[in-house]
Design a protein around this nucleic acid. Structure first.
Lengths: 349, 349
DNA sequence: CTGTTAGCGCCTTCAA
DNA sequence: TTGAAGGCGCTAACAG
């Protein structure tokens, strides 16, 4: 009568608890706990284990992660903080993470507004879940300061991050340099850059590396030739339409874009402006979206191995969760330029 | 000494508990709870409330959702089960959901493998979190049976679902009919259909509606003219390449695609096959991805208002969480055909 | 108005 | 090998 009959909050159809299973199997809750968590080896008799398993099945019991988390002080949740799921790129990152975390941890995504790290209140809510670990895409410095050292955390796509924080980056700088080199090789001498207006660090790196490399290769990029828009095809299209007349007058013949989404916007605008790509303007992007190979012209872009980013990050997190230190603490994955029609005058597309 | 000094699991830097705040403010934990949850109106003296607030700030306390959930029997979590985040379409759905759930609930995404509802074990894990409610995209019947009636749930994009389950659908059938009508109006008499191989119901509806409407409009679609591939540009491209020779011989001049991703695959393949679209083959898709307007040719497609789907679903869930019954229980949002270059012989793109 | 108390469901010593 | 018991942090009843 102590706890078997009480109806509690009454509403729900009485959830199955370990106590019920214990009673049903004629053992104690401790035994149920052991069996349910696969820790029964050598600690529970075969007979009892068998009984418990049957009861679990019959009653449809499953461990309540709330109670479990409270008792253990930590959940088996891994939260992936995702500031930009609209980017198809991101789906691959997730696939990579899933392939590693598999069944041991429960992966959940916390989505924030486009390109923004979680607010302080969102962060608190996440922490309130007592996740076992965090995977954070393009974290802001503020965000990291707010939680770092509190729990296992791996940053993804966070160039320039504190070297003490485990991270997996992509060598976007090299990719940007490759773009500049490619433009130079094609004989371009005046270029522009369409940046993303969200403040993510990786985007700043792309821009700066491009500008520096362009300079090196003797390509002129006037300050007025750097524009920006949100990561959104329509926004990029509008931004380009607005700037093109000026750029054209300045003799710009090549355009670097912060993302393929931007490049799509440029393609879109160019059609309306009657501007032919790549003949009048060579365009290159970043990310190699699945759509980038099939547009017309297809888009020259920097390919980033998104799935591998997710995989490596998850591996590092696992190490952390196992109490080890990831080795190496930070990894930078290579990027590679994929040359396609949008920068090749003599190609079909 | 009772609970203040114990080091517990030792590892973490001792989380701030309500008990600490209570002690610091010289009140009981109950008072802290009331204040922290904004339920202090008329139940806590102004002086105490003030004291508690200060202590909360000083100590950096925040409500532990684990403890809270355990005590209340339910969390403030809303889990969105997402079988296909790789589809850019989905980002908009999320935006819609977020706009409604805002700060009252915590939205978390549970990602499954492409196009598949969560497995039984994944489902149990989700249930173990004791979410306040569930939003499920394209749920399978199995999945619904496993959890329905256990907790508030709204299905998204689930045509043909049990009419007793709250749901928000899109009128994809009308969209498919519009495609067929459009083909007929363009004078096509033989068509093919490139289906998606994932078993989602919405895709079956698209296919069947298209086939039925085609028949009605006097367009012949031979059984051999229905192929399928995964929702993936590359896979669709391969599938089309394989089938095109046969279809061509059969006199097929129009192709309906289950998704825009498929259509992209077809565009890709057509370029390699030297097949010109729309002159030799008219192609239409579904979803109106942001990229679909900027491909070449741009893609004729059925536009679905993704954001609104998310918004409406979240509204229904809110009603459920407030103990009301959503009205109406199920909503079907209209879809509309967007005619673009891929089906217009005389257009530029 | 405020504090005390009794669990929520589970896991983990500690004895037996 | 097993059971009893305490406590994780919080909230809702119930006394004061």
């Amino acid at each position: 009568m102590k706890n078997g009959e009480k109806s509690g909050n009454s509403r729900a159809p009485r959830r199955v608890t370990a106590a019920m299973v214990a009673e049903h199997a004629g053992v104690s809750t401790a035994t149920v706990s052991l069996v349910a968590n696969g820790k029964s080896a050598g600690r529970v008799s075969a007979a009892n284990e068998q009984r418990v398993r049957e009861s679990i099945r019959e009653l449809g019991y499953f461990v309540d992660s709330i109670g479990s988390s409270l008792a253990k002080g930590v959940s088996s949740l891994v939260v992936l903080v995702a500031p930009d799921i609209s980017n198809p790129f991101f789906a691959k990152v997730i696939a990579g993470v899933r392939s590693v975390l598999a069944s041991d941890y429960q992966l959940l995504l916390s989505v924030t507004d486009a390109g923004v790290s979680p607010s302080a209140s969102e962060t608190r809510k996440i922490m309130g879940l007592r996740p076992a670990g965090l995977l954070v895409h393009a974290p802001s410095q503020d965000f990291l300061e707010e939680i770092s050292s509190t729990l296992p955390l791996v940053a993804l796509d966070a160039p320039g991050i504190d070297p003490a924080i485990p991270a997996v980056n992509m060598d976007v700088a090299q990719g940007a340099r490759d773009v500049a080199a490619h433009f130079a090789a094609q004989g371009h001498t005046r270029a522009a850059y369409l940046d993303a207006s969200t403040g993510t660090e990786t985007l700043a790196v792309r821009r700066e590396a491009f500008l520096a490399a362009a300079k090196e290769y003797g390509i002129e990029v006037l300050p007025a030739s750097v524009a920006s828009s949100m990561i959104d095809v329509a926004a990029a299209s509008a931004a380009f339409s607005q700037h093109w007349p000026t750029w054209r007058e300045a003799g710009v013949t090549a355009l670097g874009c912060a993302t393929d989404n931007h490049a799509f916007g440029v393609l879109h605008a160019s059609r309306q402006l009657g501007l032919s790509i790549p003949q009048q303007l060579a365009v290159a992007g970043f990310d190699d979206l699945p759509y980038s190979a099939t547009s017309n012209p297809s888009i020259t872009t920097v390919e980033l191995n998104a799935q591998e980013v997710g995989r490596q990050a998850a591996l590092k997190l696992r190490a952390l969760l196992d109490g080890k230190s990831p080795d190496p603490l930070q990894t930078t994955l290579p990027s590679s330029l994929v040359v396609r029609g949008s920068t090749l005058e003599n190609a079909g597309g």
